[in-house]
Design a protein around this nucleic acid. Structure first.
Lengths: 110, 110
DNA sequence: GCCTTTAATCGTAATATTGCAATATACAAA
DNA sequence: TTTGTATATTGCAATATTACGATTAAAGGC
C-alpha cells in the first residue's frame, strides 16, 4: 500500500508522527541545526553547507516550511529562512510529552 | 533516487534521523504508547488494540525491536514485548538535545 | 531592453515504506 | 499425532520519498 492509515489513530498520534517525520531525514536535521547556529537567517548557503543539489535542498525547505517549523522571506533575489520560534515550541511540547513517558519500573517482564 | 545520502552527514544527525523515523508512523507511536501504558508486557493484543492486520503490526514491531527500543521474549506460543528502558533513555538524550536548541532571539530577521 | 543571480518547479528515475493475503513456524493442549 | 493458537515470514501491489538535471520565474545590475 505505502499509505498510512491515519484515520484509525488519534490526532495526537498523527501529530507526533508528522513532526517526527520532519526529522526523519538527516538533511532536514542539518538544515534546522544550521538555522539555529547561524541565528540570523540565511538563504542558499545551505546548499554549500550541506552537500546536496539546490533542487533537493529547496524541496526539503519546502517541507519544513509547509509544516510551519521555518519561515522564509524574500530579500531581493535571494530568500531568507529562519526557525519559527512559536511552531518550534509547540512541536517541542508535543514531542517532549511523548518522550517523557515513564514506566513504573517494577512491572517489567523482559 | 529515494536513497538518503547518509555519508555526507554527521553521526549525530544520522542518529537523530534514525530515531525520528521510528516515530514517523502513527502505528509505531501507538505501539509504544500502549507498551508504556500497559507497563507489563503484552503480546498480540496490539493487533486488537490498533486496527491493523497482524502481519503489519508484526512488521512495525520488528522495526522497533531492530532499533532496540523494545525487547521481545517468547512465552509459550505468544511473544511478550516491552520498552527497553536503557535504549529509551539513550534515545531521549539524543532527541532532547536536538529539541532543546535555542536561538538568541534578538537576531531574528523574518 | 538584456544578462546574471537566486530560488522554485517540473519531470523522472531509483529506492523505501506501508499494508495485507497467504503461508510457514513454533508451541501447547487434547 | 492431530488440532488449535500465536507470531513471523514471504510476496506483492500501491504509494511515498529522495535526488537531481533541466527549466522557469523573479529581482537587480548594466
Amino acid at each position: 500500500m505505502g499509505l498510512a492509515k491515519t484515520e484509525i489513530f488519534t490526532d495526537q498520534q498523527n501529530q507526533i508522527a508528522i513532526f517526527a517525520k520532519a526529522f526523519g531525514h538527516p538533511a532536514r536535521v542539518a538544515i534546522l541545526q544550521h538555522l539555529f547556529k547561524i541565528n540570523a537567517c540565511i538563504c542558499g548557503d545551505l546548499v554549500d553547507e550541506i552537500g546536496l543539489a539546490q533542487p533537493t535542498i529547496s524541496q526539503h525547505l519546502k517541507e519544513l516550511k509547509h509544516l510551519g517549523l521555518i519561515k522564509g522571506s524574500v530579500e531581493g533575489t535571494s530568500v531568507c529562512y529562519c526557525i519559527s520560534p512559536e511552531k518550534w515550541t509547540q512541536m517541542k511540547t508535543v514531542m517532549t510529552q511523548f518522550l517523557n513517558q515513564d514506566l513504573q519500573d517494577d512491572k517489567q517482564c523482559c
